[in-house]
Nucleic acid binder design. Sequence first.
RNA 1: GCCUCCAUCGUCUAGUGGCCCAGGACUCGGGAUUUUCAUUCCCGCAACAGGGGUUCGAAACCCCUUGGAGGUACCA
Length: 488
Amino acid sequence: MSASNRPVRVRFAPSPTGYLHVGGARTAIYNYFFAKAMKGTFYLRIEDTDRKRYNEEALHDLLRDLRWLGLQWDEGPDCEGDVGPYFQSERLDIYAREIKKLLDSGNAYYCFCTEERLQEVRAAQEKSGAVVTGYDRHCRNIPREEAEERIARGEKAVIRFKVPETGITGFDDLIRGHIEYQNELLDDLVLIKRDQYPTYHFASVVDDHLMGTSHVLRGDEWISSTPKHVLLYKAFGWEPPVFCHLPVILAAGGGKLSKRKGAASVGDFRDLGFLPETLVNFLALLGWNPGDDREVMTIQEMIDVFTLERINPKAVAFDEKKLQWMNGQHIHQADEKFLADYMVKGLEAIEIKTSSFSEDYILAVVKLLKNRAHFLTDLPIMASYFFTTPKTFDEKAKTKNWGAGSRAIAQSVRKALEPLTEFNASSIEQAFHALAESSGLRLGDLVGAVRLAVSGVSAGPGLWEIFELVGKQNVLSRILDAEPLMEP
RNA sequence: GCCUCCAUCGUCUAGUGGCCCAGGACUCGGGAUUUUCAUUCCCGCAACAGGGGUUCGAAACCCCUUGGAGGUACCA
């Protein structure tokens, strides 16, 4: 059975060395979408073969962020499948067994070259302007017995792959087509490091085969090492998976996306108040489209129409403006109970108590606010006056709304509202209209001063709705208390 | 340096030889609605990198140039 018609098994294989950045997240998203679209398996493999850069906290954050995005793996850490372990550091015996096959078949050899010698070789190549660079194959022909004797005597060695010196190695990339490299330009890469850990190249090939990977979807920085991987599959006599290299995500102005240029990690965006649905939607659309004009989509809607063929080969820029717009769209559609919980947590964080308010009241506040929020973090900020009397008033709004004559207006509004027995949006609106008529003032002249008095700010939901929720007693007393601050 | 990949509005994209003097979305500008701010709705600005081919016909196919990205580690 060839790789392309095997059951779909794909993986996300991060290295726990730092935070999950958006590029990695998108790779995970495409793997997840493809697995779900094809009714296949999405597994998570931790590539922790670099002991120097290994970071326990990074691993923890990685799993948390992946789950937050909703990309739950079918197999991997915390949910072992049949082909584990899922941590490469726990598979050392497997790599030892597999490297022996390559040593036995003459496809790999021990190399005793020191770091210093390698540097000298590289420097000499640079100086002479040599076309063929890389390791000079100095140890390629040391007989196996001699090498093993030297190791027995305590010499340290790495194991390198014996790459063919001539010929062409090619592969078919699913979104770029056929790609070829001259073998003479490939050097004898290291398979097993001095510390006995495998390199990425060796471990990923062995694992992808042993763990049944059908398609490798990974960043396009791997394109140039793919021919070496193909050669490795061939040396083992294994069928390579289908390769699909994803374009990079660039910063808005071009160049690498980095913390310096703004938020770059999944955790950053979560803290900023983005919904996971937004991030997944936006990242998926960065380089992929559903084939029609839809943009704001649910994860399920995207999975339903997801195909690898619609991924673009072009590198893309990360436009945060559009992300923000999209977050607003997703907040409009978000579950109100979820938004309410987020809002309540945010309010409590700034010490505004909500426990004396009913769930219905809190939900009503959310309904009023959600269409004007671009970030989840906007919610508690905009909601404070529904739960507590404003302690400060927006300075700019004060000069604009509490100028000459405002106190009289506030008083007349208060008097117009006092007799209301039903205090709801429509009765309040009627009272305002009646007051406008009797006073000869426009509605716009009537609302500014009392809006500021009741909410502390000049912008927000419709005034009638605010008043209804805040309640008659609170509205009247807030206006009364603010009157001395207004000009007569 | 060498190898590889990429190239449509500022940004994300549609486009698989005639439906394209190029469509959608974000941004930006204007307008409508309105009790404020948003939302929403209309209208508008704005692109096939350049040069050669192929073809009756090219944004689409080929070549070159230019520009961008990646690789060239005992990191992934």
